[in-house]
Computed example of a mutant assay.
Amino acid sequence: MQDKVTFEYAIIRFMPKVEREEFFNIGVIVFSKRKRFLNLKYHVDPKKLAAFSCEITLEEVTKYLKAWEAICKGTPHGGAIGEFEVSDRFRWLAASKSTMILCSPTHAGLTDDPQQELEAIFEEYVL
């Protein structure tokens, strides 16, 4: 138990019409301050996407998610937000938004391997 550290995660959702509150899960973002870990994993099912919106393409959604990936990694493609501290980048990504890609409320837990948690949560809530 002493090797475990706290982590937080949020489920990434696709919600094409925020006012309708209909969504499906497309990814997971995991953050651990003590491990200086911030990463996400996503998969957008093309059939679900087409069922939810005929106006939004897989390429558009992927473009947004790649920007989120750049923010997680802190690369120049993440823009000014990519330069924030790791914790601030997570808070920005997980903040409440009125866009087609948004996050669930955050949840917390204990882990000794944040990457393993990311994989497990992704398997359970996205696939």
Rank of each mutant, 00 (worst) to 15 (best):
K4A: 08
K4M: 08
K4G: 04
I12Y: 01
P16A: 05
V18S: 12
E21S: 14
F23Y: 15
V30A: 03
V30D: 02
V30E: 00
F31N: 06
S32Q: 03
N39T: 10
L40V: 02
L40P: 04
K41Q: 14
Y42R: 01
H43L: 13
V44D: 08
D45P: 08
K47L: 12
K47W: 07
L49K: 09
A51K: 13
F52Q: 12
C54F: 10
E55R: 12
L58C: 00
T62P: 06
Y64N: 15
A67T: 11
A67M: 09
E69H: 13
I71T: 04
T75R: 12
H77D: 14
H77A: 13
I81D: 00
V86Q: 14
S87Q: 12
D88P: 02
D88V: 11
F90V: 09
R91A: 15
R91S: 14
W92N: 09
W92E: 13
L93Q: 07
S96L: 01
S96G: 04
M100P: 00
I101M: 03
L102D: 01
P105V: 10
P105M: 09
L110P: 07
L110R: 14
Q115V: 02
E117Q: 14
A120C: 08
E123Q: 15
E124R: 14
Y125V: 11
V126L: 11
L127R: 15
